[in-house]
Structures are given as C-alpha cells and as structure tokens.
Simulated assay, not measured.
Amino acid sequence: MKVLFIGDIVGSVGREAVKQVLPSLKAKYNPHVIIANGENAAAGRGITRQIANEFFEWGIHGITMGNHTWDNKNIFEWIDEEPRIVRPANFHQSAPGKGMAIISANGKKLAIINIQGRTYLPVNDDPFTLAEQLIEEAHATTPNVLVDFHAEVTSEKIAMGWYLDGKASMVVGTHTHVQTNDDTILPQGTAFITDVGMVGSREGVLGMQRDAVLHRFLTGMPARFVVDEGKWHLHAVAVELDDKTGRALKIEKIRLTEDSWLLMG
C-alpha cells in the first residue's frame, strides 16, 4: 500500500497549492490512500464542510485535525455525519466526532488515528496509552495504521514514535508547520517523521502574515493573526507499506515550492 500524507493545509493559499499540485503528486507517487491535515484550512483556523468536501472532490480520502478543530463553530453541526474526518481522540469523551476512522480506497484499507500532545497545548487524556489502544482496535480490521500526532514539542513527538514502533505503520507529526529532516523507518517497522510540515505561504511566519507576528514578539501585545497570501510551499510524505504486515518499507519527504513544483519528475 502507498500512502500520501499532506501536512497542515493553511488557508486559501494552502488549499490552492493542494489543488494545483495534487494531480502531479498522484501521477508521481501513485498513492492508494491520500490523507491531509485540515485543521488550519479555513482562514488558518478550523475547517468548514464546504472545504472538506472540496478536499474529497480533489481525491483526498481522509482528513485529520488538531487543536483548532472547533474554531469554526458550525463543525459541531456536521462532524458526526462525516466519517472521513478524525479529530484528536484524546479530547474529552463528550466531544463530537471521533478519533479513528477506517479509510477504504482503491482496494486498500488504512486506519487513521488523530492524537494531540499535552506539552504546551491544552491538557487532554493520555495520548500514548489511548493511541496504543486504538491501534489494537484497528488491527482487527487492517494491519495498516497511520497516526497523526498533533503536538508542539519535538521530544513528545519522538517519544511517541518510539512508543508506537512496531504497532503503528506510520507516525507523522503535525502542528508546528516546519518539516523536519528526520524521516526514517524505526527498527520495528514504523515510518516516522517528527513533523511533516505545512502547505501555505512560505513568505509569512508559519503561514501567517509577518507583521502581526513580529508585533507580538516585539511588544508582547496581542495581535490578530491573518493568513499570508504570499507564494506557497508544500510539504508531505509518501510512505509505502507491506500490505500483509503493515510494516513500512519506504518513507520519502516531499518539499515543493510554487516556483519549482512544475519541475518535479
């Protein structure tokens, strides 16, 4: 099985980048299943039903979320009706939606699990134990399991990778929007990267306009962050899994810019 995972899609710039590049990514990597993190897709905060449907129309099979899951309040009205979206499983048990889904596409089945870290983010239930429990549940249906660990600090993400080595097929970090250079297959067969990166303006700060971010750093005063409209960059990973065992065979970082992506071969 071949899986394409696209990092945090930020605002209209990120969405346009995915729309432009996805056909080429499909042609080059021939993925059976495409998953994307969509928690920043609507103006940098949350996702709308219309945007989610656009992603599905473009060929994305499943969407993971994160700490901005609830920023577009109307998500409460429809998330329970959309089986292809997962929000962090360790949110309070009263939260709508779910933290795991089985995605079926092109004759393959992939379980997707969304978990949120606890360091420098709102405190939620233990992500490590819950991730392991959900993986055991998923294995009753498929050996192929993707965990999107939406967390702030590298140490927590790396710890999760080691904890789930040999249990999950792939553990990919999201949230910090900067692609790390540590893509690897861990000893027990789990593909891992600390952070996949983002899709959005490379001329801002993590996809947001520079001036507001600089104002906050320079003065310590609040500032309204707005999605930057500059040229985009796109980050993703392509992972190949053994269909029978769920072990990873290959992981490849993808890093494209608006100026260079037409050169991909």
Rank of each mutant, 00 (worst) to 15 (best):
I158V: 13
D165K: 12
Q116S: 12
F55N: 02
N144T: 13
V171W: 00
E82L: 15
A151G: 09
P96T: 15
L146S: 03
H150V: 04
L121Y: 10
N40F: 00
V145I: 14
T69S: 15
V153A: 12
S155W: 10
S94F: 10
G173E: 01
K108P: 01
Q93R: 13
F55W: 09
K73M: 14
H139S: 07
N67F: 01
D71F: 05
P83H: 15
I47M: 10
S94D: 14
L164S: 04
Q116L: 13
I115L: 15
G166Y: 09
G99I: 02
W58P: 07
M65Q: 08
G97I: 06
N114H: 11
R87N: 10
Y163F: 15
K157L: 04
F55K: 01
N72P: 03
N67W: 00
Q50E: 13
E77K: 13
A43V: 06
P83Q: 15
Q93V: 13
F149I: 11
I51Y: 11
V153I: 15
A140P: 03
Q133Y: 13
L121S: 12
G173V: 04
I75Q: 01
N144R: 11
A159E: 11
R45T: 02
A43R: 07
L130E: 04
Y120I: 13
N53Y: 13
A138H: 03
A105M: 06
E156H: 05
N90R: 03
P96M: 15
G161S: 05
M100K: 09
H61T: 05
P143A: 13
D126R: 12
A43I: 02
N124V: 06
I115C: 08
K98N: 07
K109N: 11
L164A: 07
F128L: 14
G62A: 14
T48W: 07
A95L: 08
Y163H: 14
L121P: 10
F76H: 14
I47K: 01
S94N: 13
A105L: 05
A105C: 11
H68M: 12
G44S: 02
P143C: 07
G161T: 02
I113E: 04
L130Y: 05
I102P: 03
E156N: 07
Q116V: 09
K167R: 15
V153Q: 06
N90F: 08
T48M: 02
W78K: 04
K108L: 08
I158S: 02
I75P: 00
I79A: 06
I79M: 12
I135M: 10
H150A: 02
R84C: 09
G99F: 01
F91S: 02
